[in-house]
């Protein structure tokens, strides 16, 4: 008993050093050497309005390719609603709504968003069904993607607001549609931040 107690204490100390300190630091070192971009969050920087690959003098951080942002202006593609933080897309407060399927708050919120999206998007009427991802919050509250259906739904509005041909915007959406990984894993998706940055880069910032 006493011998095993001493072993328990020594074992805790020794394995903490090995598994709790050396292991994560080793992985950090290897990751920073092999995949520096991914290991730091696939951050996107800009200098003088132009996107640059990495941090440098005079550049500012625009966001992470993997972390969604809120967009509300008609000239931008909108992300999904978010339950992360009070304002949404708070990357220090990730999480979902945790509203159950029969919760009246969920139904009211979705109905409100459906009405808002119908009103915001020209040519949609009170029968238009909204792609479900545009009116539901994600699990993380930081989902960077929308479905191709949700992007297509917004093409008309973005093109009209920016006064550019709809076909060009639709093409841009297709260029930014990521297919299933290895052809069968996951679902096709459109990264909203990258799509909006591409719009701004080609047609200037939307106001």
């Amino acid at each position: 008993m006493k011998k095993n107690l001493i072993t328990a204490m020594l074992m805790t100390a020794a394995t903490t050093v090995l598994l709790g300190i050396i292991y994560p630091l080793l992985v950090t070192g290897l990751a920073q050497a092999m995949f520096p971009k991914q290991a730091n969050g696939e951050l996107i920087y800009a200098r003088d309005g132009k996107l640059v690959g990495s941090s440098s003098a005079g550049s500012s951080l625009v966001g992470s390719r993997l972390i969604g942002q809120t967009f509300s202006g008609p000239g931008y593609f909108h992300s999904r609603p978010s339950a992360a933080g009070a304002a949404g897309y708070d990357a220090t407060a990730s999480g979902g709504s945790n509203l159950g399927p029969t919760n009246a708050q969920l139904i009211t919120r979705v109905n409100g968003d459906v009405a808002k999206l119908r009103a915001e998007n020209p040519g949609k009427n009170s029968d238009t069904l909204i792609p479900v991802d545009l009116v539901t919050t994600s699990g993380s509250g930081l989902d960077p993607d929308i479905t191709p259906a949700a992007a297509e739904f917004q093409v008309h509005r973005v093109a009209a607001e920016r006064k550019i041909p709809e076909g060009e915007v639709a093409q841009l959406v297709r260029d930014h549609t990521e297919n299933r990984q290895w052809g069968f894993l996951g679902e096709p998706r459109v990264n909203v931040l990258e799509l909006n940055l591409a719009l701004d880069a080609r047609y200037g910032r939307s106001h």
Partner: peptide, 16 residues
């Protein structure tokens, strides 16, 4: 072809 549909509340688009 453009969306997985279904109950997407609390789910990520990339996982569907």
């Amino acid at each position: 072809a453009l969306q997985p549909g279904g109950n997407m509340e609390g789910k990520e688009v990339r996982f569907g």
